[in-house]
Design a protein around this nucleic acid. Structure first.
Length: 595
RNA sequence: GGGCAUGUAGUCUAGCAUGGUCAAGGCGACAGCCUCCUAAGCUGUAUGUCUCCGGUUCGAAUCCGGACAUGCCCGCCA
């Protein structure tokens, strides 16, 4: 909250004035205010609810409050039925808004440091093959949240939790050791993850048809866990008496696949600060601490040598014995499970930040709830906050790697950029190859990210090329286009206007409306970040771009004969450019200067 | 069997925590706008039992109860 922001201070002042009037009328309730969408006022007080408290008609209350507040140069009030409409003084409010924005034009919307450290875990896909779009929302949502919270003022670290201890990873590693490359088909593309996934697939097939292989892999997995637990990564691990692999080999395989996956993330504009390996919590023994901690919980039970927390009292549903809520943390043989390692990771993570946020698919809701309960049993001060997203499905049903009903993220990225390139080429024939490809990349990838973020994560999405790569209407290119128009005007003018604009020269409705829309940017960022409502940003940007387009249509800038007015309009263009760029940046979308 | 999530024009989405002045946009459809700072733009028209049934209220897309539909989950797997 920036008290020097007129958009905030006007509202606060009006609220205070109403509150004071309410007190005089003997009304204790908090004033109910809203911003009318229809635009007949900037703010309005709704008095119906407090009518009972005073015995007065709602319309009468509005009148009384208006009288009590009296006149104020900042606004005019109008009682209208049960509403008290407050309209900010156009000249004064526009001037203050403009001045405020102009002061911060270099870094609009940047919140002051909160001093809070936030760790955001996202993506965390199993490192056994390329990303497919069923889960592509995860890195986009996660990375956007990272950017948004940084803009808000938090210190943010992004983490990828790498599952390098599971069966899938062992299947992959086994495949690399046992399947001759000659038996593999051609890779989908020249990229480490596409190369390596063939070993995983081939090993999977082998395992399905051969129970010996299955047993061997299970045994390897168990011995692998032991080797890591003993901090002996060089030990040669056997399966069914056959020495096969070392823990280092497994890690190497994982790193190799991951390197390919990171290439895709880079292209998407997604950056991860830290990769935390699952094996780390085993190696550093923090897993053992967690297991011992859980054993002390009053909820801890044992059955056939396995240990678990009985959570049936803490979780809804499941009276049936078959559906008991149990958080199993050691097997009968004493070994740990994935969830136990995840718990150790979270315990470590929470100790290193003020707040942890996880981005997870909706299939993890139940697991995540258990994890939080287990964390509380460990005496953890906090639990992670989770952003869940629904899966992306294909028009014919869900995506399935096994049935080959998948769209790979890499293919989606290629297609996005290719379609963007066609559009650019339609319009421009004067670009260098470098310009063409950087614009296509920005537009294609931007369109994709924008379309993911503009819908709330919990809503299901059906993947359709036309929608995922929508280039018009409410889309990234629409916003980028307005930005390019702004850049074009400034470029054409030659020198960047850097004086002091006289906002009172703004007279056209569309230019005033533009300035006021620009003024809302900090509040939008604040609300989107604090309430984790990322979709508010694209929504706002479309509104801003649209407002800029209206201005562009109605108000000639360079052709304006009055020099002072021209300069003021130039200032408006500079602000628009700056905020459009910053807003897109918060979504991880680049804003080309031309397109 | 149970838990959780979602349900808004042909279609996709916003609005729902704090009920309130005409349910807001995009796509698609139809009709227009480039001698003028990039038409990826702009203007206009048509299209709605806000899934259904009850309840609370002066007032419900919004709150409560109950249905229905769809998705996800309920392993000593990850």
């Amino acid at each position: 909250m920036d008290p020097s922001d007129p958009a905030i201070s006007y509202e606060a002042s009006f609220r205070d004035a109403v509150q004071e009037a309410y007190l005089k009328l003997g009304i204790a309730s908090r004033p109910i205010m809203e911003r009318p969408r229809s635009g007949q006022a900037d703010l309005c007080l709704v008095t119906f609810a407090v009518s009972g408290e005073t015995g007065l008609e709602p319309g009468k209350i509005a009148e009384e409050v208006k009288e009590l507040i009296g006149s104020d140069p900042r606004w005019t009030l109008e009682a209208c039925g049960g509403y008290l409409n407050c309209t900010f003084d156009p000249v004064r409010f526009v001037k203050e808004t403009g001045d405020h924005l102009w002061k911060r034009r270099k870094d609009p919307g940047q919140g002051s440091p909160t001093g809070k450290k936030v760790i955001i875990e996202h993506t965390s896909a199993n490192p056994n093959g390329p990303f497919h779009v069923g889960r592509a929302r995860n890195p986009i949502i996660g990375d956007t949240l990272v950017r948004l919270l940084r803009l808000y003022g938090h210190e943010v670290e992004s983490q990828y939790w790498v599952n390098d201890m599971g069966k899938q990873v062992m299947i992959l590693a086994w495949g690399i050791k046992n399947i001759p490359p000659g038996e593999l088909g051609e890779p989908g593309r020249e990229k480490a993850d596409h190369h390596m996934v063939r070993y995983y697939q081939a090993a999977n097939e082998r395992m399905e048809s051969d129970t010996d292989v299955q047993e061997e892999i299970n045994e390897l997995l168990r011995n692998y866990e032991d080797a890591v637990g003993d901090q002996d990564l060089g030990r040669i691990i056997s399966g069914k008496g056959r020495p096969v692999i070392t823990a280092s080999d497994v890690r190497e395989a994982v790193r190799e696949v991951l390197s390919g996956m990171v290439v895709s993330l880079d292209r998407l504009g997604v950056h991860l600060d830290t990769f935390v390996y699952e094996s780390q919590v085993v190696e550093d023994r923090s897993l053992q601490d967690v297991i011992e901690g859980l054993r002390k919980s009053p909820l801890c039970r044992e059955e056939d040598g396995a240990s678990f927390l009985d959570l049936s009292e803490k979780m809804k549903g499941g009276d049936d014995d078959k559906y008991k809520r149990r958080f199993v943390f050691t097997r009968s043989d004493g070994s740990a499970l994935y969830t136990t390692r995840d718990l150790a990771y979270h315990s470590w993570k929470l100790s290193r930040c003020d707040r942890a946020i996880n981005v997870l698919g909706e299939d993890h809701r139940y697991q995540s709830q258990m994890l939080s309960l287990a964390l509380s049993e460990l005496g953890s001060t906090g639990v992670p906050e989770v952003v869940f997203y629904a899966f992306v499905s294909l028009p014919g049903g869900k995506m399935s790697t096994r049935r080959n009903r998948v769209v790979f993220l890499d293919d989606l990225l290629d297609e996005a950029v290719e379609r963007a390139r066609e559009e650019v080429e339609k319009r421009r024939d004067d670009l260098t190859t470098g310009e063409l490809s950087s614009i296509s990349e920005a537009v294609g990838i931007g369109a994709l990210r924008f379309n993911v973020i503009k819908v709330q994560p919990e809503k299901r999405m059906v993947f359709r090329w036309e929608e995922a790569l929508n280039f018009e209407g409410a889309s990234a290119p629409f916003v980028q286009y307005s930005h390019a128009r702004a850049c074009s005007i400034i470029k054409k003018h030659g020198v960047e206007f850097d004086g002091t604009p006289d906002w009172s020269l703004l007279v056209e409705p569309s230019e005033i409306s533009l300035l006021r829309t620009l003024g809302r940017f900090p509040q939008v960022i604040e609300e989107a970040a604090s309430k984790r409502k990322m979709h508010l940003v694209p929504l706002y940007l479309v509104e801003l771009a649209s407002s800029f387009n209206d201005f562009y249509r109605d108000c000639p800038v360079l052709a304006e004969s009055n020099e002072d007015r021209r300069d003021t309009r130039l200032a408006l263009v500079v602000l628009s450019r700056s905020i459009l760029k910053k807003g897109l940046g918060a979504l991880g979308i680049t804003a080309p200067e031309q397109m």
